[in-house]
Design a protein around this nucleic acid. Structure first.
Lengths: 349, 349
DNA sequence: ATTAGCACTCAATAAACTAGAGTGCTAACA
DNA sequence: TGTTAGCACTCTAGTTTATTGAGTGCTAAT
């Protein structure tokens, strides 16, 4: 069966309406509301075809049709019309990102917050993925005898600390010297690139022993590797409860439970293709059974070839795709500008 | 009317049963299940008295009785029997706190997590309140020309960073000297104690100017004052959906919305009395209308006179108070031991 | 190819009924 | 005088039955 232009128009009309009302759409509704010049009977025949082709489904025999995941996919890829953002929307995105930024993570949280607010869905975000980053500065700061604090700054200006134990007899001056050595040797390396030849190189410095260097390197690895789940942010988690398809307490719980488990959210955000596009996962396209009735729109942003994180909006499959995608596009653009400003500035580049 | 021993026994029995079943309790149930040697008619009369005194309420004329906030209050203060924790429970609390702790916040998150798991309610926690802390170490680390990173460590080993701008021509050696000066002058002071005389004192150091010292002090204040809401942790937010009184989507949403707004949670945790006791807020005793059907059990823990934070468990007013309070007590004890170990160690004291 | 018409289906809502848990009151009892 | 058995009454929750209306699929006419 061929998906001709009339079928596409009808499908589009049905999905538009369904996104709007969350009610199964009948042939008469389409005939009345959209000027297709066709009677309900004709549309009825076309709808039967569309169902057979897998784009529509029927909750029960005497109900209207609702879109299937496949239907939404076609809609997103080909049918829907772009939605212009209003001035209020673009403006609030712009203003949200205009904060005084101290750390990348703040920028991301802010971005996540505004996405949730504009779309009225739930936003999830993941902050910089440290193990892909490279070191920009390392400092060893003495706190008191036998204890020091390692501070690591990455090329994306993410800061991590970790306490370490050091031998008691180490002087503050020596640590300063050591910090300088570490800085020059490790600068620009990713954590994976710190191998034995680099370590041997550092050991050549006067006074540097295995006893002192090992806890420091462990501390650095600790700081970096520990992608801890605190770097996952969520906003508007209860928004889902506003949508009729999640008014059922069991459904709502299923959804909220996934958000409660940060490693699930982490997995969700990490399964995305890393590219410059807006990613759309519809319904069962994500492989978490409990949210097979949800869609996820994500964008991964980066600086150079360093992936800095991912922001996503998750809502019912009956999502206002046009609006969400437009918002994400605009956010991505503004976010990239901000990242450039932020990291650019600090790099002096 | 006098609340004699028999009335108290009956009230206790009713509340025990109601906490268990969430169903209004009738006179016959009490007569049957508890060996009070009284007929249902007698209990009926006593129940009418208890209702008149405000300890019980009736959802409708032909239903059993449910406890009022006042009833729960009496129950918590005087009636309930302590609940021994099982070995599994004490053991899992102990093991949860045995992690390798890098920062106080990790300890608190861990504690919050285990409370939610054991009680099956929602736990909320607040990490160290920085502005009551005193400074233990301050370091100014050059990142590149014109930019430096301030690292602040408090007496509770909480670490905060903030980027600052400094004049271009400042040398790394000078910053090291300055760090040393700041360390000796600011050590032991709280943020409120850094006044103009302290600042003047620092300015006496050779080469220190207002231009250089002001951004640094601002950076310190930034790090400290910014009690940001990331320091609020929650676990088991969806647990509430397991309790029949919150199966209603509107009720559930009301509850979850409060948790979604971190400043509400913040307010909730901050309104607690700061003392060494377990605090119990029953129903409308907390002044947030939306959670007037919830009870909150909190404990504030501290080191010396420094308040380090608060951990709370929030659930329906029909809460297993005995279990929650026992758990909190045990947690408090273990937590204090850990804090002593942790901070003690690092202080060398 | 399109459409009007009609019989049929099914969910949702309302209305009527039933069952049962629980109360309050009264009168009898120890 | 406190306690209890007994009974009429109340109210909710659950079940059954009937009704409505939106929507479909099919057929025959255009």
């Amino acid at each position: 069966m061929y998906l001709d232009d009339r079928k596409r128009k009808i499908l589009q009309a049905i999905i538009d309406d369904y996104i709007d009302t969350a009610e199964p759409i009948g042939s008469r509704t389409i005939a009345r509301k959209h000027e297709l010049g066709l009677s309900s009977a004709t549309i009825r025949n076309e709808m039967a075809d569309l169902e057979e082709m897998g784009f529509l489904a029927q909750p029960h025999t005497s109900a209207g049709r609702i879109p299937s995941d496949k239907g939404y996919r076609l809609y997103v890829d080909e049918l829907m019309k772009a939605r212009e953002l209003t001035f209020e929307e673009t403006d609030s995105i712009k203003r949200a990102l205009e904060i005084r930024i101290n750390e990348m993570t703040q920028l991301i949280r802010q971005a996540s917050m505004i996405m949730s607010k504009i779309t009225r869905y739930t936003s999830i975000a993941m902050a910089p993925q440290l193990n892909k980053s490279t070191l920009k500065a390392v400092q060893v700061v003495p706190i008191q005898d036998g204890r020091a604090l390692i501070i690591v700054v990455t090329n994306a200006n993410v800061i991590r600390n970790s306490f370490i134990k050091i031998p008691d007899n180490v002087s503050a001056d020596f640590l300063i010297m050591l910090s300088n050595a570490l800085n020059s040797k490790l600068n620009g390396l990713s954590i994976d690139q710190i191998n034995s030849s680099v370590i041997q190189d550092i050991e050549k410095e006067p006074g540097v022993t295995k006893e002192i260097i090992m806890p420091i390197l462990e501390g650095i690895a600790d700081s970096i590797n520990n992608i801890d789940y605190s770097d996952i942010y969520m906003e508007g988690t209860t928004n889902i409860l506003n949508y009729p398809e999640f008014m059922d307490i069991v459904k709502a719980k299923e959804f909220l439970n996934i958000l409660d488990e940060k490693d699930m959210v982490y997995k969700l955000l990490n399964n995305q293709n890393v590219n410059d596009k807006i990613n759309v996962q519809i319904g069962a396209e994500n492989d978490i059974e409990q949210i097979k009735d949800c869609s996820l729109v994500t964008v991964t942003y980066s600086f150079g070839n360093v992936v800095l994180g991912t922001i996503g909006v998750i809502g019912p499959t009956r999502m206002e795709y046009a609006k969400v995608i437009s918002s994400m596009n605009f956010l991505k653009r503004k976010l990239n500008e901000e990242i450039l400003k932020h990291i650019g500035n600090l790099d002096g580049s």
